[in-house]
Design a protein around this nucleic acid. Structure first.
Lengths: 186, 186
DNA sequence: GTCTATAAACGGATAGAC
DNA sequence: GTCTATCCGTTTATAGAC
């Protein structure tokens, strides 16, 4: 028996579909069939497709960032980086999904300004968090950071986004571990 | 006066459209209006949209890889990395495009197996080329490489793919330079 | 080669009954 | 809230005239 509300199911399946096929790659019909309602019912909850996507970003973003901020800051930086990597590993799902905001960043030319800003906000949060982590790891001597940690945080986040993409493309989960390994002191 | 054949124009505009909006984000109608023909004429050259995309990959791939392989191998590794970064900078175009194969990697769930293989092939060529470059830079002492160069090549290529994405998202070209800087000896 | 015409399915969205 | 019915534009693709 399904306990979630229709609205919750819609958001959940919408998230999966976007992470699989992108904004232009799924329709209200796809979603309706998955949830078992008619497309007109979706419009009751989300008048337009953009409304749906924006709400999907909000849910995804708040959950992901909460998990990221919850990473125990008393651990050493290299262990925290491992936990971050594992978090990123979960977005792969059955190996056919990429990060929701990474996907929407690819589709950004099809989306309105306010959605772009939500995606930017998610990127920035990850970048600055990683930047601070790298700064600490450098000070501790647990991570290898060449140059300014802030810029290195942006590069590292880009590496993670690119790596989920190639992990799915090649069907290999192991690539995500290579990223953290490239920053660890050996 | 337009000197290119219709076929050449179709491929050129198709490349731009894919790099801007992705596989599901453009139509034969968009393309027809840009070139100034009817959609049925496009089917004469490319029976299906997949035929068009595959040919666009072939053109893009052979041109990009040729340019990459032409990077003077007598230079030091850090200078070659700069040239590679500048190459990647060109894909941004007016700041609204990302790598064709990076975009199609995001759209991969909408595409057939033989197109997936073409995208994989492009990724692999870049990854191995960068891996060898990093190996040489490490030996020369001009680049900072932590760990195995092969894995580092995959991470670096992912970083470039992720960085064109975020460069477009934030409208800042400078991020591409940060990547190479993170690998240079200072 | 390029066109007109057309097919047949799909797209997001709305009105109004229940 | 969810449905049926419907609008109307779009999409890829084909047939056949020129």
């Amino acid at each position: 028996m399904e306990t979630r509300t229709v609205r919750e199911q819609l958001l959940d399946y919408a998230q999966n579909l976007i992470m699989l096929r992108g904004y232009n790659g799924f329709s209200y019909r796809d979603l309706a069939e998955l949830v078992g309602v008619k497309t007109s019912s979706i419009h009751y909850y989300f008048p337009s497709k953009e409304d749906l996507v924006l709400e999907a970003i909000n849910v995804y973003s708040s959950e992901s960032l909460a998990e990221m901020y919850a990473i125990d800051s008393s651990q050493s930086a290299d262990l925290r980086l491992d936990r971050y990597a594992r978090m990123f590993g979960k977005v792969l799902g059955d190996g056919d999904q990429i990060c929701l905001c990474g996907m929407l960043a690819a589709d950004i030319a099809s989306l309105p300004e306010h959605i772009k800003q939500a995606v930017q906000s998610f990127f920035r949060s990850n970048e600055t968090w990683l930047g601070k982590l790298l700064a600490e790891g450098k000070k501790q001597g647990t991570l290898v950071v060449n140059g300014e940690p802030e810029a290195a945080g942006r590069v590292l986040y880009a590496a993670y986004q690119g790596t989920v993409l190639s992990s799915r493309l090649f069907g290999t989960k192991g690539r995500l571990e290579e990223v953290a390994r490239a920053y660890k002191v050996r």
